[in-house]
Design a protein around this nucleic acid. Structure first.
Length: 875
RNA sequence: GCGGGCGUGGCGAAACUGGUAGACGCAAGGGACUUAAAAUCCCUCGGCCUUGGCCGUACGGGUUCGACCCCCGUCGCCCGCACCA
């Protein structure tokens, strides 16, 4: 009888070596079994893995191990999203080269992942900064370029005038550059774009086919694509108010509210605004101010609504005698629609705020169906809903929908200067994807600029265009620009001196096809289409909700673009998507305001005195304030290092904990007590199994059909069925709860077996149940499962064994207990044969004491019998 | 600002398609074992009223025989917003 504690420090490396030796997790592309591709979003090599990674990769690993047991040929690869700004920041701050910084980080993070015991095929590993990877990305770029899916246009960037560098949105803090503190300007640069908008409608329509995606993600993408049906409408400008310009085209989705219009507004970058600004210093100043506001939409829209009158006047399309002012407004975007709107203050909150600020009229034109036209008025809130038209002349009394139709039909038939006054137009909010980055640590864009030949693609034979290693980061700006030789190159066309493109690609490009590359990472071409088409789509993709829009939408576009260029034959890259929640933790701090200092969880101890929790600094005993629970972050110091956890409890405990308690799509709160609970479970399973092991080894597994052993077999097989369903749904927390229940049920019988007090039937049932238990925990705590399996005399590795099948006879009940309600409140239970018919149930219910008392002699109004569920007696 | 989500005991949660609210775990309290501690095992554990009942799923309404679940409104918190990944 063994009673040693389970020692993960000994067991875990041992089983990891065993798996490696047997190449259990290496995947063959030509394996005949049905394929299953499970993938977690690959990490950015920041240096250390964090608990979010542990949770993400554990979930993927459970799916991979479970599906492998279910007989699938599983592909479960891992790689590194290795380009990006942090490497350049490290280079600037510490003088370390981005490449060596990145590869060192990869080495240490890989070591951390290895310790977790993940069932990954490391043979397919790559980093996106490997020239072997980005060479194929350049190949794809050239194919896209040839296909017309890439183009150049002018576009704005955040410009730091002191550092002379382009800033990312996150580097702009309160309108200033994060390092220089200079007021950020916007600059126009010629940049590269992918034509994602060519696919707007298709990307929208295909969302309906993604039935294994969370509804909320599909909705978010739908809103992001933002299809709207509206009217492109031309307004005549009053002669002489706008120089030579005679008209202004606005896009509107609400032509029905035209009689509520009180102003027109144009973007600061609208040609008309520029024209006015040229002669009007005030408008010029305002436009400048708008440009300084930054490129982020959030910044724009949270800013106070402001504008300035351009002096231009426009004639109302339905009443030429009605003149409206044209403003430049900070909330109108040049990229959307036509960069000009008409403002209807009663029907749009922004327009209302704007009108109140500048004293413009507010005429209600839509009121709720049951409203009173005489008294309906707009206060501080616009009425944006549907309803009935008022104050709208010939539209009065129509529904919003009919008014839209009436106005649209009327105006599209009218002409103005010989062409239709208005045109129905489908508009998308989605913009083309700008991929140019004025940075070093990214995939070089493989083109050459020649004075004579223009933009010339780098011939494929010359790929990869490799980043020069000898660069400096002592000053801001793009090191590729100031490299002494790199950008000088002969034009591939005419041979004359020419210049390389020094922009590199957005790192979202790297992550838009890595899942395809994993299917054949050794291929000379970007893909082996046959292999890619076999493995794709990814059956289960798992990652953070923060990627709900950009990464996933870009990948959906990229897959279509790769299809158009013959690299794959599919449209959708991810069949199943799961978005997991974050790992959050309490925060601890001392001091207040600017003096506030954050303290790491490792530096404190939690005490509970008289029901009050307090945190105490280990070193000094000083009391530390317990703050709110927040996403683990370096700045708040509320991080727990997975290495520390694994070192003290082992990987299985860490894995089990991140799957326990919280539903996987919700945040999980990391707590020391919770980890200890998981660790107790690991120890408990080991103790129960190992103590009984000697006797179990000598016993054949045999589910029982009667007596006390039957309950053991029923519990095991029911749990097997339930956990199977939970794993299929990725409901790991529920699987954990079921497994706890099973272990609780098995505790006494296992102890009996250990003491040699079990009869043959019970011993056989316990052996069967224990085997099932080991299979159930194997995906979550694989090392413990192997250790238990060997201990009870199992053959081979659990990681290579098939999933057990539950015995249908053991999971059905012949009798069921129905709750009995009286007037919707539970008052009694009724135990009755499972197949009892309605009348049998009714008479049994009426015979119950509680029901007799409630009825007090009278007969019930109604008896509702929901088969297999509940009975409700209405008295 | 716009878009999306979430809200259930002291805490994390469960509750199938509208059908027993609180499974399972954590924390806490009590007990057993121990010289003692740890570990382990057993019991209690939403609130209020003395047993039986009443109240209770953020808050206020509604639909229903029956609502954590559906509808309307309010409040609070979180995420995304196109150059962070």
């Amino acid at each position: 009888m063994s009673s040693e504690r389970y020692n993960p420090r000994d067991a875990e490396p041992r089983w990891q070596q065993e798996w490696e030796k047997h190449e259990v997790f290496q995947t063959e592309n030509d394996d005949p079994r049905e394929k299953y591709y499970v993938l977690e979003m690959f990490p950015y090599p920041s240096g250390r893995i964090h608990m979010g990674h542990v949770r993400n990769y554990t979930m993927g690993d459970v799916v991979a191990r479970y599906k492998r047991a279910r007989g699938f040929n599983v592909l479960h690869p891992m790689g590194w999203d290795a380009f990006g700004m942090p490497a350049e920041n490290a280079a600037m701050e510490r003088g370390v080269h981005p490449a060596s910084w990145t590869y060192q980080n990869i080495a240490s993070m890989k070591a951390q992942l290895k310790v977790m015991g993940l069932s990954l095929d490391w043979n397919r590993e790559f980093a996106t900064c490997d020239p072997a990877y980005y060479q194929r990305q350049q190949h794809l770029f050239l194919d896209f370029l040839e296909k017309g899916l890439v183009y150049r246009k002018q576009s704005k960037v955040n410009w730091d005038p002191v550092d002379n560098t382009v800033l990312a949105n996150e580097q702009v803090i309160d309108g200033r550059g994060w390092r220089s503190g200079a007021l950020v300007e916007q600059r126009e640069l010629t940049q590269w774009f992918f034509r994602i908008t060519d696919f707007s409608q298709e990307l929208l329509d295909a969302l309906d086919t993604l039935d294994q995606w969370p509804e909320k993600v599909r909705l978010m993408q739908k809103n992001w694509i933002g299809r709207s049906e509206g009217l492109s409408l031309r307004w005549e400008l009053v002669n002489g108010t706008a120089g030579d310009a005679a008209e202004l085209t606005v896009y509107t989705t609400r032509p029905d509210t035209l009689f509520g219009a009180s102003f027109l507004a144009i973007a600061a970058d609208h040609p008309l605004a520029r024209q006015v600004a040229a002669t009007n210093p005030e408008v010029e100043a305002f436009c400048e101010e708008c440009r300084r506001a930054g490129t982020s939409l959030a910044a724009l829209e949270t800013a106070e609504k402001k504008g300035i009158d351009t002096g231009i006047r426009a004639k109302h399309p339905l009443d030429p005698s009605w003149e409206l002012p044209v403003y430049v407004a900070n909330f109108v975007l040049m990229d959307y629609g036509t960069g000009a709107i008409f403002g209807c203050p009663s029907g749009d909150q922004r327009d209302l705020d704007f009108a109140r600020k500048y004293g413009l009229p507010v005429v209600p034109v839509v009121m709720p169906k049951d409203g009173d036209a005489a008294t309906f008025a707009i206060g501080d809130e616009a009425y944006i809903g549907d309803g009935v038209m008022i104050n709208s002349r010939f539209l009065d009394g129509l529904s919003t929908e009919d008014a839209f139709e009436t106005v649209a039909s009327k105006l599209e038939k009218e002409t103005f200067n010989g062409t239709p006054r208005a045109e129905r137009k489908v508009n998308f909010r989605l913009r083309d994807w700008g991929i140019s980055r004025q940075r070093y640590w990214g995939c070089p864009i493989p083109v050459i600029h020649c004075d004579d030949c223009g933009v010339v693609p780098v011939p494929k034979a010359d790929l990869p265009v490799v980043l020069p290693p000898d660069v400096t980061f002592d000053k801001p700006g793009n090191p590729l620009d100031r490299h002494p030789t790199w950008r000088h190159v002969a034009c591939p066309h005419c041979g004359k001196d020419a210049r390389r493109e020094t922009d590199t690609m957005d790192t979202f490009v790297d992550s838009s096809w890595y899942f395809t590359r994993f299917t054949a990472p050794w291929e000379d071409n970007p893909t082996d289409p046959k292999v890619a088409n076999h493995w794709l789509p990814v059956d289960q993709y798992i990652g953070g909700i923060e990627h709900a829009i950009l990464h996933l939408l870009y990948s959906r576009f990229f897959t279509r673009a790769m299809k158009a260029t013959g690299h794959v034959a599919i449209d959708e890259p991810f069949k199943g998507l799961f978005t997991q929640g974050m790992v959050v933790h309490e925060t601890y701090s001392r001091g207040e305001g600017a003096q506030r200092e954050w303290v790491t969880p490792a530096e404190i101890r939690i005490e509970e005195i008289d029901g009050r929790r307090r945190a105490v600094l280990l070193e000094t005993g000083e009391e530390i304030a317990i703050g709110s629970i927040e996403k683990m972050s370096k700045s708040k110091k509320n991080v727990v290092d997975p290495d520390d956890i694994i070192a003290s409890y082992g990987a299985d405990t860490a894995r089990f904990f991140v799957l326990s308690d919280s539903p996987p799509d919700r945040d999980v709160i990391w707590s020391e007590a919770g980890v200890e609970g998981s660790h107790r479970f690991v120890q408990r399973v080991w103790r129960l199994v190992s103590e009984a092991a000697e006797n179990l080894r000598a016993t054949e597994a045999a589910p029982a059909s009667e007596g006390e052993a039957l309950a053991v077999s029923q519990a095991a097989h029911k749990t097997l069925r339930a956990v199977e369903a939970d794993y299929d749904k990725l409901a790991f927390n529920k699987a954990v709860a079921r497994i706890y229940e099973l272990v609780n049920t098995l505790a006494a019988p296992l102890t009996q077996v250990a003491a040699g007090k079990a009869d043959a039937a019970l011993a056989g049932a316990v052996k069967d149940a224990t085997t099932i238990l080991i299979n159930l925990i194997a995906p979550m705590t694989p090392h413990l499962a192997e250790e238990c399996w060997r201990e009870i005399g199992g053959e081979g590795l659990i990681a290579e064994r098939g999933w057990p099948a539950f015995n249908p006879a053991l999971v059905v009940e012949n009798e069921i207990t129905l709750p009995v309600q009286i007037n919707g409140k539970k008052r009694a239970d009724l135990t009755i044969a499972r197949d009892a018919d309605q009348s049998a149930i009714e008479s049994a219910v009426l015979a119950l004491d509680a029901v007799k008392t409630a009825l007090n002699g009278s007969s019930p109004k109604k008896i509702i019998v929901v088969p297999q569920r509940i009975v409700n007696v209405v008295v």
